[in-house]
């Protein structure tokens, strides 16, 4: 499938700021299942550092603007050819040992409700292979947290989302990571794009899902929000321990002012 992406992030400041600096993770990962045909990240007026690849295999770039500004706009556009790998991440060069993804952050720290969810899902299937247990956990999370935009916010933790009983892709991912850790499966947060499909299932174009490490298979993606594994409708950007760690843009406004943020993401499949 050929997917085109147009992703604009615009920051408007009430009063001019002294500058801005960002660490961007906005280039698709190099792995089987996705091939970049063309890709640009543009930030008018900014100094762009060279793109480098970190130990997790993500493409990282430093972008800075060191002069007074009233707004800044990041435009990501490109075309990617995708194929379905049933969620399995292959051909991805990375150096981080999977066991390093066993640690929790404040956002993925399990609470009792999450522990009970894991026990309910897995207790009867202790002998099941890891891949099967991973599927069971993803299904359990999907069931426990119906998709409901607005139920949570950008800083909601896995535990808080469980208490709320609903959430969006970020919450599903955090809770699934917490569940996986309890089941002794390394897990991480993946940020990317999702092509909106017409089958009525919930979706977010700027999307997130979890990857769980399955011995013998490697990293496998699980999208609890859409009750599936990532397929040719997905574009993988990068990963981290949680939403903050994996954020496509981590930035800081110098001489901070109130900002208005406007994000639009359009993903389209080209007609074959």
């Amino acid at each position: 499938m050929i997917l085109t992406v147009l992703h604009k992030t615009r920051y408007d400041f009430e009063t001019p700021v002294a500058g801005i600096i960002q660490s961007q993770r906005l280039t698709p990962a190099r792995c089987d299942g996705q091939r970049v045909i063309d890709w640009q990240v543009e930030v008018p007026g900014a100094v762009m550092g060279q793109v480098f690849r970190d130990g997790a295999g993500d493409y990282i770039q430093t972008v800075s603007l060191r002069k007074p500004a009233t707004h800044i706009e990041v435009t990501v556009s490109g075309t990617v050819e995708t194929t379905d790998t049933s969620g399995v991440l292959r051909g991805h060069r990375e150096r981080v040992p999977p066991r390093a993804y066993m640690r929790a952050t404040p956002r993925t720290k399990p609470n009792r409700a999450i522990a009970e969810l894991v026990a309910e899902a897995l207790d009867a299937h202790a002998a099941a292979p890891a891949l099967e247990r991973a599927h069971m956990l993803a299904a359990a999370v999907a069931q426990a947290l119906p998709y409901r935009p607005g139920a949570t916010h950008a800083h909601t933790t896995a535990a808080e989302a469980m208490n709320e009983g609903a959430g969006v892709c970020q919450d599903h991912t955090h809770v699934l990571i917490a569940c996986a850790h309890l089941a002794d499966l390394p897990a991480r947060y993946v940020a990317g794009y999702l092509n909106a499909t017409d089958d009525g299932s919930p979706h977010e174009a700027s999307h997130a899902w979890a990857e769980l490490f399955i011995d013998g298979l490697g990293w496998v993606g699980f999208d609890a929000s859409n009750k599936c594994c990532p397929n040719e409708h997905y574009i993988r950007l990068g990963s981290g321990l949680d939403a903050q760690d994996a954020a496509p843009i981590r930035g800081l406004v110098l001489g901070g002012a109130t900002e208005a943020l406007d994000v639009t993401v359009v993903i389209e499949a080209q007609q074959q």
């Binding site: 997790a56 150096r95 040992p97 390093a100 993804y101 066993m102 640690r103």
Partner: peptide, 16 residues
């Protein structure tokens, strides 16, 4: 492995 890789002081950002 876990003593090293699950250690909070093991910095994923500089792996590799």
């Amino acid at each position: 492995a876990d003593l090293v890789y699950r250690n909070d002081a093991y910095e994923i950002a500089v792996a590799g």
